[in-house]
Amino acid sequence: MDTSAELGSFLRTRRDRLTPEEAGLDQYGSRRRVPGLRREELAQLAGVSVAYYTRLEQGQSLNASDAVLAAIGRALRLDEDERTHLRGLARPPRKGRRRPRQERVRPATMTILNTMGYNPALVLGGRADVLAWNRPAHALLAAHLDYDDRPNMARLVFLEPHTRDLYADWPAKARATVAYLRQAAGRWPDDPDLAALVGELTMNSTEFAALWARHPVRQCRSETVTFRHPLVGELTLAEEVFQVQEDAGQRLAVFAAEPGSPAESALRLLRVSAWPKP
């Protein structure tokens, strides 16, 4: 992916979402050709010259100092994930530093995965590929697929009707999926498989394309997810996400129910259904 173009797109979307009033700037006249901050207004807030900021947004200056990037981040009111993304785009990795095309799960991680009992658990790669899952995770997320399949979760979210119906708040899941892929693309701009995945989803899902254009950025974090499962009905689970191999971007996701809740009973039923009958 073109890092300089990504940087410009990211900065423009963040300028567009911040109004002069929100930034504490006085307005002189009501006619504006841009929805958010102008370049000169952002430069003023960040304490840099307009010419310098323009070069940065146009990808012509990829050696911005920590102080400048921090000032721009404050001016745009970026959160922690967005600030990290900005630094990554402004300082792209050296050529040759790519994510492994064939990601593998370490034996220790597999051991942890296999001790989760009836709790659904899976290991996701940096491109949102399912690298490994236990049978409860398969039964929860993709029972319509063969257990030995290793699907890509982003493809499931945007291209599989089953997955769209599975998530009670599908729009939230869609936004989170795009936000994760955006930060991954910023971290690994030379990953051809990730670029191909983004291209495929953009061509085949107008919803993905629209979300991608907004340039959301967010790391995967623990949250509460409500599913509408075709076998056990509605169940609300806590999803805990653990980074298990930082350099490769792998993460272990584990789902758990409140003890004594209907969701816990539903998980136990899923566990029974997950294993093949003798």
Rank of each mutant, 00 (worst) to 15 (best):
M1P: 09
E6G: 04
L11F: 08
R14E: 04
S30R: 14
R31V: 06
R31K: 15
V34M: 07
E41P: 01
E41I: 03
Q44H: 03
R55P: 00
G59H: 00
A64P: 01
A64D: 09
D66I: 07
R77N: 10
E80D: 15
T84Y: 14
P92E: 03
R97H: 07
R97I: 05
R99H: 00
E103Q: 15
T109K: 08
L113Q: 03
N114L: 12
P120V: 05
V130A: 10
A132V: 07
H138G: 02
L140G: 02
H144I: 07
D148Q: 15
D149R: 14
T163K: 06
D165S: 13
R175S: 06
V178I: 13
A185W: 00
D193T: 11
A195E: 15
A195S: 15
V198M: 14
T202D: 13
N204E: 13
H215N: 14
P216W: 03
V217E: 08
V217I: 13
C220M: 12
S222T: 14
L231W: 09
L235G: 00
L237F: 02
E239P: 02
V244N: 12
E246V: 15
E246H: 15
L252K: 11
F255E: 10
A256I: 03
S261M: 01
A263I: 07
S265N: 15
R268F: 07
W275K: 13
P278A: 07
